[in-house]
Computed example of a mutant assay.
Amino acid sequence: MKEKILIIEDDFTIQTQLKTLLSGNGYEVFAVTDFSRTIEQLKEAAPHLVILDIKLPGNNGFEICSGIRTFSDIPIVFVTSSNTDMDELNSIMLGGDAFITKPYNPAILLAKIAALLKKAYRSPQTEIYMWREATLHLESSMIEYKGQKA
């Protein structure tokens, strides 16, 4: 499955750099084009992760993050030139999952994205242990012995 990432960034140069970096690393990338319809575009794109700037036309990144959190737990990575402790604290308090300042290190950004996607969308592990004629299913707390379930 190719994960989808939505970029909410008004600087076209940075938006293009992010698109190139992410698509070159196997992600399907979309970008918000109409900042008066950011939430609607997010819902339409149905991404697995959002990259969000703070300083945007219309609603700022904090307001957008708060809006997203009213209906979704999608991972949100703030990538911004706003580098004060208060900005980072606000991003955490409003539900952001990572805070990276510009200029960003591409390797670190990619590592954070991969870690957040893995954490958010990991497939459940079915743990089954077998010994002779007994089978223990940890997920369902069930045991089988000689075909009988308990």
Rank of each mutant, 00 (worst) to 15 (best):
Gln148Asn: 13
Asp11Asn: 15
Gln148Gly: 05
Thr16Pro: 03
Thr135Asn: 02
Ile74Ala: 05
Glu40His: 12
Thr20Phe: 04
Asp34Glu: 13
Gln41Trp: 10
Lys102Arg: 15
Glu88Trp: 10
Ala120Met: 05
Ile100Thr: 08
Phe35Asp: 06
Leu110Thr: 03
Asp87Arg: 09
Asp10Asn: 12
Ser141Arg: 14
Ile14Asp: 08
Thr20Ala: 04
Ile76Arg: 08
Ile74Val: 15
Phe30Thr: 05
Leu49Gly: 03
Ala98Gln: 11
Gln41Val: 12
Ser82Tyr: 13
Ile51Lys: 08
Asn25Val: 00
Ser141Tyr: 08
Lys55Asp: 11
Leu116Thr: 05
Lys55Ser: 13
Ser36Trp: 06
Ile100Lys: 10
Gln15Arg: 14
Ser81Thr: 12
Ile39Pro: 01
Met142Tyr: 00
Pro103Leu: 08
Pro47Leu: 10
Thr38Trp: 02
Arg69Pro: 07
Ala46Gly: 10
Leu18Ala: 10
Ser82Asp: 12
Ile100Ser: 07
Ser123Trp: 02
Gln15Tyr: 05
Ile128Asn: 06
Asn90Cys: 09
Glu133His: 13
Ala120Arg: 14
Trp131Asp: 13
Leu116Lys: 12
Leu56Arg: 06
Gln148Arg: 15
Lys119Glu: 13
Lys112His: 02
Arg69Cys: 04
Leu138Arg: 07
Ala46Lys: 15
Ala114Thr: 01
Met1Arg: 06
Gln17His: 09
Ala31Thr: 13
Val29Asp: 11
Ser123His: 09
Leu6Thr: 09
Ile113Cys: 01
Ile74Gln: 08
Met1Ala: 06
Pro106Cys: 04
Ala134Asn: 07
Gly26Lys: 03
Met142Leu: 02
Thr16Asn: 14
Ile113Asn: 01
Ile7Met: 10
Leu6Arg: 06
Glu88Arg: 15
Gly24Ser: 02
Pro75Ser: 02
Ser23Ala: 01
Tyr145Leu: 14
Thr101Ala: 09
Pro47Tyr: 11
Val32Pro: 05
Leu136Lys: 03
Leu21Ala: 07
Leu138Phe: 04
Leu117Gly: 00
Leu136Phe: 13
Asp53Asn: 15
Ser82Val: 09
Glu9Met: 09
Val50Trp: 12
Arg132Asp: 13
Val79Phe: 11
Ile143Ala: 10
Thr16Met: 10
Glu40Val: 09
Leu110Arg: 04
